[in-house]
Every structure is written in structure tokens, then in C-alpha cells.
Amino acid sequence: MADRVCLQPCLGSTSAAATVGRQATYAALAELGQRADLGCAPALFAEVPEDVIFIQQDHVIAIESCDKLCANHLVTQKGYAVHATVRVDEVLAAAGIDAATLPVETIPLDDPAVVVVRDEIVRVARRLLEAAA
């Protein structure tokens, strides 16, 4: 079984939820250390070898900012499986955070919106890694 996770965010550019997901992915990657890889959507689409290897070998966690589920679509279109999905919009809503009030360009890593999504990604990643151990 895989002993790593690949964090595969949607990489939207037009919504604050996508920016939260992006920043939370970086923060979760730092927390998970050597047990996580960072999946890049355009690179996976272009079949850059390391990005293909990540989704071949790792547990894939899609980090989606909305119900379009673009990261899920991309991974499955490439013929691979998504093992868990973190919905940024749902995590923020559950925490009572309105994404519409956040900037799109960037959001600090210590912003409560980023922190709550980071924590959810890390929780899901640890669950997958523990199940595989």
C-alpha cells in the first residue's frame, strides 16, 4: 500500500475558495513532510513524469474549492483514483467562514480560513496513511 499522499488541489484562479485551498495545500504539505507530494493540475494534464508518478503511487487527496470537482475530474480522466476529497467550500461553511469576504490573489497561511482547511487536509491524510500502515 502507498505510504505517501499526493495533495491535488483544484488550482482555480477566480475564487477565494480556490486560493484558500491552494494556501492550505502548501501548509498541509509542510505539516506532513516527507509523507506528502504536491500534485500540480496543469503538469498532470501535460503528463510531466513526476506528477504522473505521484498519482500512480500515492493515495490521492483532491482539494476542491467547489462542486465542479475539477481535480477529481482530471485525476479520473487520466485513469487514476482519488482516495479522498476535501471540499474547501464545505469546510469553510462548517467553520462559519464566508469565502466571499476573502481576497482572491493570496491569503496568509495563518488566516483562520487557511488553518481550518489545512487541518482538514492533514486529518484526512493521516487517516489514509494510518489505514495503509
Binding site: 483544484c10 488550482l11 482555480g12 496543469p42 498532470l44 481535480a71 475530474h73 482530471l74
Partner: peptide, 17 residues
């Protein structure tokens, strides 16, 4: 953000079809 006539496309949405 500076130019309202510019439609920003997102790689995420394009890879998501």
C-alpha cells in the same frame, strides 16, 4: 482585477472541462 474586459480563465476549470 484592473481590467474588467479581461476574462480570467482558470487552469483548474480547464482541466476540469
Amino acid at each position: 482585477e484592473q481590467h474588467p474586459e479581461v476574462v480570467l480563465l482558470s487552469v483548474g476549470a480547464l482541466t476540469g472541462d
